[in-house]
């Protein structure tokens, strides 16, 4: 390591020496968000398990019923194996970020929308696929939704007004739902500060 390198190491340490997180808030927010992530993951695994179970039942039914096929046909032999894997993988043995492939790790850490740091005077909840945003007594929520739901937001449903859609990406869209009495200008201020993933 050269003198310059040592100087950089020292400078980095000195620059952030006095920077400390608010531990109480960090623990509160991360446990709340983490619990939600875990629930979502568990639901995903359960759904995959049900799908795998249905696939297995279908395969067994097809095998028992004959139908011109047998259980040893290559087309059937490979399907339940891949589909059944998630149900046989409890949460505690899911692959770690260190072991899983890069795309899967990135997928788990996807956040499609962020709030520009220039937005002042707002309280923004932990930014993930849905988060609260408040300014004074005005409360709004920003929600990232899968594109599968897009039609229901543009089909005239009064509970899902199309004017709440503020961004449409390739695989997702974003809604901003204002609480009671939120002026249009306040909503517009928040919408102008949102930044989106290009996907």
């Amino acid at each position: 390591m050269t003198d310059h390198d040592r100087a950089l190491a020292a400078a980095l340490r000195e620059r952030v020496r006095d920077e400390d997180p608010d531990l109480d808030q960090l623990i509160q927010v991360s446990t709340r968000t983490g619990a939600r992530l875990r629930r979502r993951r568990t639901v995903g695994i359960s759904v995959a398990g049900i799908a795998a179970g249905v696939a297995v039942i279908g395969i067994v039914g097809a095998s028992l019923g004959g139908g011109g096929t047998t259980g040893t046909e290559p087309g059937f032999a490979s399907q339940p194996t891949s589909a059944a894997t998630p149900s046989g993988t409890p949460p505690d043995v899911l692959p770690t970020l260190a072991n899983m492939d890069r795309s899967r790790a990135d997928e788990l850490s996807d956040i499609h929308v962020r709030v520009a740091p220039t937005l002042r005077g707002w309280q923004i909840g932990p930014v993930e696929d849905g988060f609260p945003a408040s300014k004074g007594d005005y409360h709004l929520s920003v929600v990232v939704r899968p594109m599968d739901n897009y039609d229901s937001w543009t089909g005239g449903d009064p509970d899902r007004p199309a004017n709440q859609v503020v961004h449409v990406g390739e695989t997702y869209f974003v809604t901003v739902q204002p609480g009671p009495g939120v002026p249009q200008a306040v909503r517009d201020e928040l919408v102008a500060a949102l930044r989106y993933d290009s996907r």
Partner: peptide, 28 residues
């Protein structure tokens, strides 16, 4: 996180998102 992002708001977001994921898999 602050050295990476250079911004205190992004630092808070990044740190919270990190610990949320750690919490979600804490037993492992």
């Amino acid at each position: 996180a602050l050295l990476l992002t250079g911004d205190h708001h992004l630092t808070d977001d990044l740190t919270q998102a990190t610990y949320a994921r750690v919490y979600a898999s804490w037993r492992r």
